[in-house]
């Protein structure tokens, strides 16, 4: 398992397993650049991160990560079609308003896209709602009034959107904490990861 600071990011190992050797990657919402560092050291991948927060941008510079300060809500205009092997968005999709738009852009700019997000269908979240409160957990650490998340969706919702928009799920992984979930992940997984492609024309 990969550990950064006191945060365990098992999703990074899954992503590294999906990314091919020497790939050209774009990481949307790259934070301090840990995933890019991980992909550089494990897969010799190289690329760029996009990050909005100035403190993260400075940390990326300290980590010698190529970082472009930009707001993802502005989309990926400026990037060319197929400019990257993978466009990755780790645990940020739920914080972007224009979900549909950014997914389409990821698959325009990237040959493939990799996304991970907290699964709002996770059974503990369902219990919480049943008890009358919005869920707060390791994967959803914020209160409803201060969460940066703006889109609340389940794995089933996401797969439905992919289906409707001609996005092909190439691979899927789901976890409860660090435990891989194979059976009924929409119920038992707190975090989901997808490797996505475009439907062949």
């Amino acid at each position: 398992m990969v550990k950064f600071g006191n945060q365990e990011r098992h999703d990074y190992d899954v992503i590294a397993g999906w990314v091919s050797e020497g790939a050209r990657v774009l990481d949307l919402g790259c934070g301090d650049g840990e995933l890019l560092l991980h992909l550089a050291s494990t897969r010799q991948a190289r690329g760029y991160g996009i990050e909005r927060d100035p403190a993260h941008v400075i940390n990326c510079l300290s980590h010698r990560i190529n970082v472009l300060q930009s707001d993802l809500e502005q989309g990926l205009a400026g990037f060319k079609d197929g400019e990257f092997d993978y466009v990755i968005m780790s645990l940020s999709l739920q914080a972007v308003h224009n979900t549909e738009g950014i997914l389409a852009e990821m698959l325009r700019v990237g040959r493939e896209a990799v996304v991970s997000f907290p699964n709002f269908g996770y059974w503990r979240h369902r219990v919480s709602i049943n008890e009358g409160h919005m869920p707060v957990s390791d994967s959803l650490p914020h209160q409803w009034y201060n969460t940066p998340n703006v889109r609340f969706f389940t794995m089933a919702d996401f797969e439905q959107l992919c289906e409707q928009r001609g996005i092909v799920v190439l691979e899927r992984a789901a976890f409860d904490e660090d435990r891989a979930i194979d059976i009924d992940p929409n119920n038992y997984a707190s975090v989901a990861l997808y490797r996505l492609g475009r439907k062949a024309d």
Binding site: Y48, P54, V57, C60, L61, I65, N66, V67, L68, Q69, S70, G78, F79, K80, E83
Partner: peptide, 16 residues
């Protein structure tokens, strides 16, 4: 930034 990126250069960009 984009012209450099399209050329595969290492580039970082801060918008202060």
């Amino acid at each position: 930034v984009f012209a450099l990126l399209h050329n595969g250069r290492d580039v970082s960009y801060a918008e202060i």
